[in-house]
């Protein structure tokens, strides 16, 4: 049996779909193509198999995701992850928050920032630059957006270039997308006895 997690956690949970994923054995040619399944690569996550129900969206989203999160120049990887984490905290996406906190910690070789975010939320103890990024990204993630010209000016005051601000907007908005798939279409779960 599994327990559905209700609180943010550093430990990446398992993702359990709320709808039936595509059965690889019955997948169409278009689905196999979008899933990039080949005889030597048949491992596909349940999440991707779930999204394979809408194959046209799946096919365009993966390259867009990679371009926004890993594109050359502009904002560094850790700060893009901070945008992703901020959106995930606002949208309550426990799975995305755990995955991207882990990536942030791996890049920074420190859990200090993400520990503070999980422990203290909006009151987290952040550097002035991370604080400006976090406040802007949280506000942009609200519905409607609550991001202001003042918050944008604070990004510039904290030293962000125009391209870095654009990258922050893109990575934060992207998780407005990802959270609405991950948090909506499945549950973050942990086998009983491993709940943390």
């Amino acid at each position: 049996m599994t327990t559905v997690l209700k609180k943010f956690t550093r430990t990446v949970p398992h993702w359990q779909p709320r709808v039936r994923p595509v059965d690889l054995a019955q997948a169409t040619e278009a689905q196999l193509d979008a899933l990039q399944v080949t005889p030597s690569n048949t491992k596909v996550s349940e999440y991707v198999l779930t999204l394979a129900h809408d194959v046209e969206s799946l096919k365009v989203r993966s390259p867009l995701f990679n371009a926004i999160m890993y594109g050359k120049g502009g904002m560094n990887r850790a700060e893009r992850e901070l945008g992703a984490i901020s959106a995930s905290l606002v949208n309550g996406c426990i799975y995305c928050a755990a995955v991207h906190a882990a990536r942030h910690a791996q890049i920074e070789k420190s859990t200090e920032v993400t520990d503070s975010l999980f422990r203290d939320g909006a009151e987290a103890d952040l550097s002035p630059r991370d604080r400006a990024i976090f406040d802007f990204a949280r506000a942009l993630s609200a519905c409607p957006s609550e991001a202001t010209e003042d918050q944008t000016a604070r990004l510039r005051e904290a030293g962000l270039t125009e391209l870095e601000i654009l990258d922050l907007i893109l990575s934060t908005a992207l998780f407005g997308w990802a959270n609405r798939l991950m948090h909506v279409l499945g549950d973050p779960v942990r086998p009983d006895g491993q709940d943390r």
């Binding site: 991001a147 944008t152 407005g176 909506v184």
Partner: peptide, 30 residues
């Protein structure tokens, strides 16, 4: 099930696009 995924993708994409636009407008105005 497939149509539930289609609804989520539509919603998720538009929510993304709205925030990209909101961000660009802020960059311009500020």
């Amino acid at each position: 099930d497939a149509d539930i995924v289609r609804l989520a993708e539509l919603n998720a994409f538009v929510s993304y696009q709205i925030r990209v636009i909101a961000g660009l407008r802020l960059m311009k105005r500020s």
